[in-house]
Computed example of a mutant assay.
Amino acid sequence: MRTADSVIAPAAPEPVAEGRGAAPAWRRFCVLLVGGTVALLAGYLALALAVDPYDTGRPRLLNREGVRPQGPRTASASRGRDPAFTAAIIGNSHIQLITPERLRAQTGIPFVQLAVPATGPGEQLTLAAYFLRHHPNPQALVLAPDAFWCGDDPALPPSKPFPFWLLASDWPDYLRGLVQSRVAAEVVTRIRWSLRPNARRARPDGYWDYEPDYLRQGDPSDPARVAARGRRPPAEPDPGFAGPAFPAAERLRAFAAGLPPETALIAVFPPIYAPAQPIPGTPRAAAAAACRAAIRTALAVHPRHRVIDWSGDRPQLADPAAFFDPTHYRQPIARQVEAEIVAALGALRPEGPRE
């Protein structure tokens, strides 16, 4: 006879683990999400490469030369690789008024203007290297080293954002640069632009006359504006001014040493309104002179170079009507700078036929 204690009670059902079925579903969702994101990114990059939004010449589907009207920061990628040009002007707004068309008319050399406002030596030497990659044997390069070349940071950092990725020689940097919202918007814009047969194109030679922009800001002969641009700078150099070593000059030396010996290399120290120049005998004036000397020494490694120095006390620089501000001169000064560039190119012309 079985007792109550010997009766085996039925086994209680095991509790179902909460969320046991949710884990596989969550994993599937994560895999689908990651896979979808990767596929979407790969599809976008394929489209961006096919469209080539800034006309870098990389593999593309839309065979439309040039770019729509836009700023020189991005348009320079298209202009800098254009085989129609065999010489370049590189700098910022302090060399922007030099006209490629006039230089070509007087020298026969097809110039492109690659000046980008508010850039310094890092951006400008990057542009020069990009031009050289696409034109291994250029006829001439005109650089405009100004006060921005006299900093003490060896990294030569830009003062404003600059698309280094667009000029990169390697694919990883270029692909990373494509993954930006503004670039994606430009992909769409370029598709629309390319499909319009009469769409306006940015000027191929890159010339941009800034005079109308300055005139819209007010009358340059206004007494208050004249007084403002004639204000003397302090006696001491700005913080970050280099010396005795100048990193930009060292980078220039390496670049100049790598140029073909047949290439004419011209450096223009840009015009500065005379009353706004450093007072002679001050530390600021000494530092500026040391910077220019370092640049001259760097250029000397190249056998065909010239320096055009407009930083001194030429009588034209004392004319207040010739400037918009201490460092932005007007067309009459620009024509005189052009004339000196033409003369320097004539003096550097090789004796024999060019290969």
Rank of each mutant, 00 (worst) to 15 (best):
E351D: 14
F29Y: 10
L141W: 00
Y273V: 04
R2V: 14
P59G: 08
P353A: 09
A87W: 07
G218T: 05
F255T: 06
A249N: 02
Q124K: 01
L47E: 09
T99F: 11
P261W: 00
P110F: 06
H305E: 10
L143C: 05
I8P: 05
T99R: 15
N92P: 03
P158G: 01
E123Q: 15
V38T: 13
T119M: 11
G120R: 11
A264Y: 04
L103Y: 07
Y44T: 12
P270R: 06
R229L: 14
A224Y: 00
D313A: 14
S169V: 03
T86P: 04
L125P: 05
A50L: 11
Q139V: 05
F269Y: 12
R20A: 15
Q124C: 00
A287C: 06
Q96M: 14
W149E: 05
E351N: 14
A290N: 12
A344N: 09
A293K: 10
G122Y: 08
L348H: 12
Q139C: 02
A128P: 06
A298C: 02
A344E: 10
C291A: 04
P138R: 08
E123H: 11
P69S: 01
A184D: 07
V301P: 01
A289Y: 01
V112F: 15
A22G: 01
A249S: 09
F323C: 06
L299S: 03
P244T: 02
P239Y: 02
A256L: 06
D52L: 09
L127F: 02
R133M: 10
F246G: 05
R182N: 15
L45N: 06
G122N: 06
C30Q: 13
P157I: 00
R192V: 13
P163G: 03
D319M: 00
S311K: 12
E351I: 14
F269M: 06
H135L: 12
P212W: 00
V342Q: 08
L32Y: 00
A343M: 05
W165H: 04
D238K: 14
R27A: 14
A128I: 08
N63T: 13
L178C: 07
I191A: 11
W149N: 01
I8K: 07
A25E: 13
